[in-house]
Amino acid sequence: MSLSPDDVKRIARLARIEIDDVQAQATQGQLNTIFDLIATMQAVDTSGIAPMAHAQEVTQRLRADIVTETDRHAAFQAVAPAVENDLYLVPKVIE
């Protein structure tokens, strides 16, 4: 299988990465060589094999329902690109 320029644009769009036609073309070539490499795993018969999502067979530890955090918004917002009235500012959100 190989990716088309439209595929490249679609995934760049999903990932919110601006890409122009020239870049899309270059990227297409690189991604296709990578997907050729990836394709080698597709011939493997994996029927009946349980997918492995985690390195260890353990289950989730649960945290007691208690409030442990304090207000640190001043420190957190000191590194923010745009803040006003303690709110993070972004270009207007349209619903």
Partner: peptide
């Protein structure tokens, strides 16, 4: 950016089973 795009692709609709799930199964092997 290349890896983000590979990742977005293998998780995207219609490709998840063939790529992501298959890879997780071989991970177990």
């Amino acid at each position: 950016k290349r890896r983000i795009m590979i990742g977005a692709y293998v998780l995207s609709h219609g490709y998840y089973d063939a790529y992501y799930l298959q890879a997780q199964k071989i991970r177990r092997l």
